[in-house]
Write a protein that binds this DNA or RNA. Sequence first.
DNA 1: GCAAGCTATGTAAGCGCTTACACTCATGGC
DNA 2: GCCATGAGTGTAAGCGCTTACATAGCTTGC
Lengths: 335, 335
Amino acid sequence: MSSPPTIEDVANRAGVSVATVSRALRDLPNVAPATRARVEAAAAELDYRPDPSASALASGRTKTIAMAVPMLDSWYFSKVMAGAETVLAAAGYDLLVFAVHNDDPGDRLLHRPVVRRADALIVVDIDISDEEAAELAASRIEVVAVGMKVPQMEAVVVDDHRVAFDATMHLVSLGHTRIALIGGVGEGRQQFSVPIERRAGFVAAMTAAGLALDEALIVDGGFSVAGGHRAMADLMDLTEPPTAVFAMSDEMAFGALRELWDRDMDAPADVSVIGVDNHDVADLVGLTTMQQQVVEHGAQAARLLLRHLLGEREGDDVHVHTGLIERSSTGPPRR
Amino acid sequence: MSSPPTIEDVANRAGVSVATVSRALRDLPNVAPATRARVEAAAAELDYRPDPSASALASGRTKTIAMAVPMLDSWYFSKVMAGAETVLAAAGYDLLVFAVHNDDPGDRLLHRPVVRRADALIVVDIDISDEEAAELAASRIEVVAVGMKVPQMEAVVVDDHRVAFDATMHLVSLGHTRIALIGGVGEGRQQFSVPIERRAGFVAAMTAAGLALDEALIVDGGFSVAGGHRAMADLMDLTEPPTAVFAMSDEMAFGALRELWDRDMDAPADVSVIGVDNHDVADLVGLTTMQQQVVEHGAQAARLLLRHLLGEREGDDVHVHTGLIERSSTGPPRR
DNA sequence: GCAAGCTATGTAAGCGCTTACACTCATGGC
DNA sequence: GCCATGAGTGTAAGCGCTTACATAGCTTGC
């Protein structure tokens, strides 16, 4: 007998029907304790594990959660993924991950075969059109968003407006008046709320502080180290460069720092730099940042989803908080 | 009709049998071009996508690859994952990821239900006993290892002995004689070849250089920033601290640098530090390192696996190479 | 012109589960 | 003592595909 044991093998060995085996092994009621024990013993002896495909086909539930991210090899997404996986694994769910490139607008989530494999979907920072959101809401699949806000979809949300406002205000309070923003919207992404909200928060803070808004100081860093590097180069090439920079992510801030060092400049002596995330190495390079509990974002999304799958839908977003961590990359402007 | 269309709906609409639909949609031979076109049109009109569970149950193939890593939120693993996902997605396979904590020896891979969902398994830096390796080899599941060498299992391998030898020799060539090793084996991991080989390479280089081996200079950094930090603290507290450190990973090297800076010391002025990986921020902090094409490790593993699944098994490991990237964290010892 | 050999298609038997429904006994209230 | 009740178990019908096998129609060679 080389192929794996089936439920029938277990039933024969335990001397009961397959239905009883199915019930016993899934802890359903109406199974006599003695029978349950016999079934469990038989299953253990045969090293039986139910076939997930068969189980999914018969029950309609896959016990799998899919997770869509713009890219797999980024610090933020791997943290979110880790947080979700821990919670899901504990609940007996498996995690199917896939990348959806935000710059490919034809790539509709629901058209991905992978989504059919899952009971639910966690979307992280994916640009979703209203139309697609409606399609998702109408589908069989439960969806929870992380990071961005999509109409009708529950989410683990950061108050991005406030994060940006606070970060900018930190620079303002140090005395800066010429403050740049390194953000990123990118080509295909229209609805992606994170950069939009953070930009709005930045603008609100500048306005609140009575500071002029110079469009030349708002540049795109594509949420990557390399992008932040380039963006900072552009800023420093201006005839009147900024004295402080708010980067929408630590990775872009790293790139910005790198560019300063390339120019034999330093933070905060020449330019103050603040990021968002509290990346693992932010501490190492002394980056002031708005801390996020990123692993917790994933864990919360997973918990929210599990509640949905149990039918408890209270329709409330989960709000996660941020806070300023002051390190050595920000300080008063040079006079 | 709220539930998704089935193959039967497509068959009715196209006026053929379900068998023909199945064949037409999977590009099998012996389908008349006109019929195929009609089936494809019907499928498109209904927005039909086959149910993966049903397909898996009937065919025995899930079109899914599972990937086991010690943890999801580490730079190295997320890169490997990304490399594999890109290749697998292009071939129509989905990626199921899960964490196997190396310090839990009771956690056998084959006993994980998740593995039953997959046609094949990529294991990355997982501590696998010979017994478990044999069990895997005998199973229905194809397995490819990344990073570590397991008997009977094809792998994407780094010549870890050489990496360590070369890194150590770089320090030796700069004139260092008191060289420390920050590595990591950890409790439960007995067979995990990466630290074992790297340690051997370190020892070989020291011996080749005619240098004394001081066991006090070999410390555990657990392959994390925090662990490297602690390890470096222990080293610097020695009555005779090292003048150079070889850390088995960049993340541990970052921790080591951090500890130096905490002590108002610097690399390479006080201690030279070299790592392995060429982590995204290694460049930023000027870390000398042994470069690895980590994304490529995952991609190669995926390609190897796809070949296996097509029945082409040539039994050859894929070797990936490393090279020294000299930056500012290494230099001659202070005299 | 006909058997042999194709190609194109259909028929139907599973794949290994879950679950609605039916059934058999105990048990208990009256 | 009888019927309603409910706990424990079995029977069997799917779930939506894949695929071995059967069949029907066309070529082709001689």
